[in-house]
Design a protein around this nucleic acid. Sequence first.
DNA 1: TGTACGGTCTGTAGCTGCTACAGGATCAAG
DNA 2: CTTGATCCTGTAGCAGCTACAGACCGTACA
Lengths: 141, 141
Amino acid sequence: MPDHHTAASGLKRSELARLTGCNLETIRYYETVGLMPEPPRSPAGHRRYGAVHVERLGFIMRARELGFSMAEIRGLLAMVDRGSHSCAEVEKMGRHHLAAVRAKIRDLQNIEAVLAETIAQCSGSRTPECPLLEVLSAPPR
Amino acid sequence: MPDHHTAASGLKRSELARLTGCNLETIRYYETVGLMPEPPRSPAGHRRYGAVHVERLGFIMRARELGFSMAEIRGLLAMVDRGSHSCAEVEKMGRHHLAAVRAKIRDLQNIEAVLAETIAQCSGSRTPECPLLEVLSAPPR
DNA sequence: TGTACGGTCTGTAGCTGCTACAGGATCAAG
DNA sequence: CTTGATCCTGTAGCAGCTACAGACCGTACA
């Protein structure tokens, strides 16, 4: 069997990308901004990733999926690295982010209500002018 | 009475900003990207805005508040300018945008659920490790 | 008339979180 | 040994602004 890359040699960037589902270029981006550690290089200068990098990238991607900003992720990773992460500190960040998410949901729900209401008036198509354009054109009373 | 700016002379940029609540620099930005028309200039090259610009900027700001993208606003403004805007076309854009808003709400609600659930486990603080960090560290099963 | 202070002008760089090239080096298969 | 895929770096672009530098301008006060 073709055992190209042993544990010692490590994964190529494209392999890490496939494995994690992360975009190829995004990996390099995470390295340049310091979220991902710079991996060791092959003699020719090619990146060789290990299990550490797979885990780290997974962490970052899950955090991104939960909407954490890069700055927040940096903070989370720092706590992980320190090892002695106080759960309270992590929880605080989590609560803070949760509040932001809820605020965003409320904003969008307001938008949704206005849009839905306005468009509902539209659908009769009996009205002479377009209600949506009227809402946008009118000063907010 | 100090009638500085008559209808003929027009508003300064800072006045338009104050009047509409729009950021000063943003007005120039909207001009460079073609959302706002270039205003006439005073002999010294200073912008002089009229009622047209006040209305236009209001339209843009209300559309932005409803979450329309610049491209969409460009489309809406084009319809307004054509005058012969088919309400059906506007409605279609509106519905499309509404769908996008609802999708975003759903995404955020999923995030909210995961975060809230995880953090709830946190608050006991009896657990040895932080549940949020565990969720982020664990592969998605 | 001078001068001080603020407003306005332009161009350009920065922000977030990526994505997409160009142009060169390198690797792996045939 | 050649070909094609992959890798490398640096750089520019996207949305939607925001902020600064450095040069003008315009007005109030003395």
